[in-house]
Design a protein around this nucleic acid. Structure first.
Lengths: 228, 228
DNA sequence: CCCCTTATGGACCGTCGTTCCATAATGAGT
DNA sequence: ACTCATTATGGAACGACGGTCCATAAGGGG
């Protein structure tokens, strides 16, 4: 790990590796092979170096994946720069932008931690908090409500997207859903009265709409708080 | 893995191992050492057997942990047996029961998958769906709303509780919060106007209340849907 | 009393994260 | 221009892990 955080008094090759480069290559591998496919050996090979060099820029695999996930989050938070509408619609758009980012990098969502420490996760929470404040919610409630929304976005995204990580194409997803639906269908209606009735909805649902449904309910609940 | 699911036509020792026993021992180790501490070698040692024997009852570590997590969920779903109040309060109590169960087994929450396949996760979703139906929500919306609540419970619990897995005692948690609060305090207020203002709330918040805050907002939003 | 099935447990394989260290490249001070 | 401390490299080596294999036990049904 680079020992000095200030100016480098010496060293620094022209072809130098950097944490940015390492994390970037890690993201590429994570996208292609998933979390289990990312290996220090493979990463070293891609970067034409050895595993030891990587540890100079990153202290562990956990940190590497956390940094990668935070960078994914960074794209989403940076992309969301509308001409500011109402706080409610801005929150809506922000949440969906984050979901879509995780959708393209299914390995990332579970690695955003709470309370946030990494820069882009912090930026997300700060943005949420600023928007929540704009709804006119009393100051004492802002922390709890903002973090609740943060938790919803990251937690529910992870929950919805994570099972897709092992899967690949859209066809595989359909097969997976069909199989699960059949499983539900074969349950005992006495034990599972609800599930056996709604397998058709399971078969035809879109993950993104699921996320938005819950988000809308949450934001509607928020609105009734703020109006009081 | 046991090849036959019907009656066993032969075999069956007196001191036989079983999936139940294996999963039970795994839960004990997970509670004590966390997910990284659970090892087939260690588990075999605890059960006075070899690793090969374990693979007869469980096909992989992933399956083992999934079964363990589902059993944790089972305790919560089984414990929640109030004299049925209103659907809203019943949902409230159910959600909190699940959160508390995960709270005692911090490794479990991230391993509940969606859409559910394991018996107790299915039971939870079914219960939610039944309660949602009781609120009078139109049938077309029940699937989306029920899964949204399911996602909230499991996803947000995981998000809130997961960072606690490496930690141990309450004192360590306080130190962790204090350190994070200090980190936020040192951020540039120009970049993070919200976070730098609410470090006191971060320091003194209770995770369980955070979960409940979001839950209340969600259920309030649900109510305004159902009333329409 | 066989014999087929269920179940065991320990040796073994390949791979992984991580550590170690000899060595290169570089800029600052003289 | 020559040190020399510092930054950075990369490949060998270590210990531990998940998982497989297989010789062997332990019953019960014919």
């Amino acid at each position: 790990m680079p020992r000095t955080r200030g100016r480098a008094p010496a060293g620094g090759r022209a072809d130098a590796l950097s944490q940015e480069v390492v994390v970037g290559a890690a993201i590429a591998l994570l996208d292609e092979l998933g979390e289990r496919g990312l290996t220090f050996r493979l990463l070293a090979e891609q970067l034409q170096t050895g595993t030891g060099a990587l540890y100079w820029h990153v202290s562990s695999k956990d940190e590497l994946v956390a940094l990668a996930a935070d960078q994914v989050l960074g794209h989403a938070v940076a992309a969301d720069l509308d001409p500011a509408p109402s706080a409610g619609t801005a929150l809506h758009a922000l949440a969906i932008a984050v979901f879509d980012a995780f959708d393209q990098h299914p390995w990332a969502a579970p690695h955003v931690s709470a309370p946030p420490t990494l820069p882009n996760a912090l930026r997300l929470l700060d943005r949420i908090g600023t928007l929540v404040a704009r709804t006119g919610l009393p100051a004492e409630q802002r922390f709890a409500v903002s973090t609740a929304i943060f938790y919803y976005i990251t937690g529910v995204s992870a929950q919805i997207i994570a099972p897709r990580a092992p899967l690949n194409a859209t066809t595989e997803r359909d097969a997976y859903l069909a199989q699960t639906a059949e499983h539900w269908q074969n349950l005992d209606p006495a034990d599972y009265p609800f599930l056996t009735l709604i397998t058709k909805d399971l078969r035809h649902h879109a993950d993104r709409d699921q996320f938005i449904t819950g988000l809308d309910i949450l934001l509607r609940g928020l609105k009734t708080s703020a109006d009081t």
